[in-house]
């Protein structure tokens, strides 16, 4: 049995975190989990402590990218061979994780994306978002020649090589389309599996309408930069023994 990890980035998710973790314990039994609490203002940290949840607490608020990367760093240090990020807001259906892990462990692809748009079931998100997502599907196809039906899906499971890579380099925010391009550039293959997603239950979405323009611009440029291979110029951190 391979070691599998679920990374749950949590920022002010006190209203969701228990449901999320219990859901994992019940429906994704072959997975370990780690919550990365990004210095929440609410009771997220204390709930995790009281419930005895496995939780990393970032002492300084560092943003979603840094929180998720801390999870990958954890996965790397503790020898996990498979890691997936699940949002702390209960949007993602963890019953699909086994299937995704099986697909990953076949070894043909190094990243498996849970896609809403293969079977078009479950929450399909708003028309504007779908337009944005279509743009990224097209943009990634243009840049890499790969067809990814749901490039903004947060459900992305990766194997050990990619865990090691993400532990070194992970975008600060809105990483999904960009990392897809980066991985394709590095010669990794990406597969997709149909999943259903739910509408979030409480808390705010990380992309408010006002940020949409920033999101589209930043991610579009980030994909282009990833295609041009700027990752090459990054200096990795020295590993601490």
């Amino acid at each position: 049995m391979t070691k599998r990890l679920i990374i749950i980035p949590a920022y002010n998710e006190a209203g969701n975190i228990i449901r999320t973790v219990e859901d994992i314990r019940e429906n994704a039994k072959s997975f370990d989990y780690v919550i990365v609490n990004d210095c929440s203002d609410d009771d997220t940290m204390r709930i995790c402590e009281k419930m005895g949840y496995n939780c990393l607490n970032l002492p300084i608020r560092s943003g979603i990218g840094a929180a998720v990367q801390a999870g990958y760093l954890y996965a790397k240090r503790y020898g996990y061979e498979c890691a997936i990020q699940i949002d702390g807001d209960g949007q993602h259906d963890v019953t699909f994780l086994e299937e995704m892990a099986d697909e990953l462990e076949k070894g043909k692809v190094q990243m498996v994306i849970g896609s809403r748009f293969i079977e078009k079931q479950g929450y399909q998100s708003s028309i504007w978002r779908r337009m944005g997502i279509s743009w990224f599907t097209f943009w990634i196809f243009l840049l890499t020649g790969a067809r990814i039906t749901d490039p903004t899906s947060g459900m992305r499971m990766v194997g050990r090589d990619v865990i090691n890579f993400f532990a070194e380099e992970y975008p600060k925010d809105y990483p999904e389309p960009e990392t897809a391009v980066t991985l394709l550039q590095l010669g990794y293959a990406i597969g997709e599996i149909p999943v259903r997603m739910k509408q979030r239950k409480s808390g705010e979405s990380s992309i408010s309408p006002g940020r949409a323009i920033y999101y589209m611009t930043k991610v579009t440029i980030a994909c282009l930069m990833a295609r041009l291979g700027y990752k090459r110029f990054f200096v990795p951190y020295k590993e601490i023994q």
Binding site: L58, P59, I60, S62, A66, A70, R77, Y237
Partner: peptide, 9 residues
């Protein structure tokens, strides 16, 4: 960022 992550770990 890296320091923060290391402290958490």
């Amino acid at each position: 960022k890296r320091l923060t992550q290391e402290v958490a770990l």
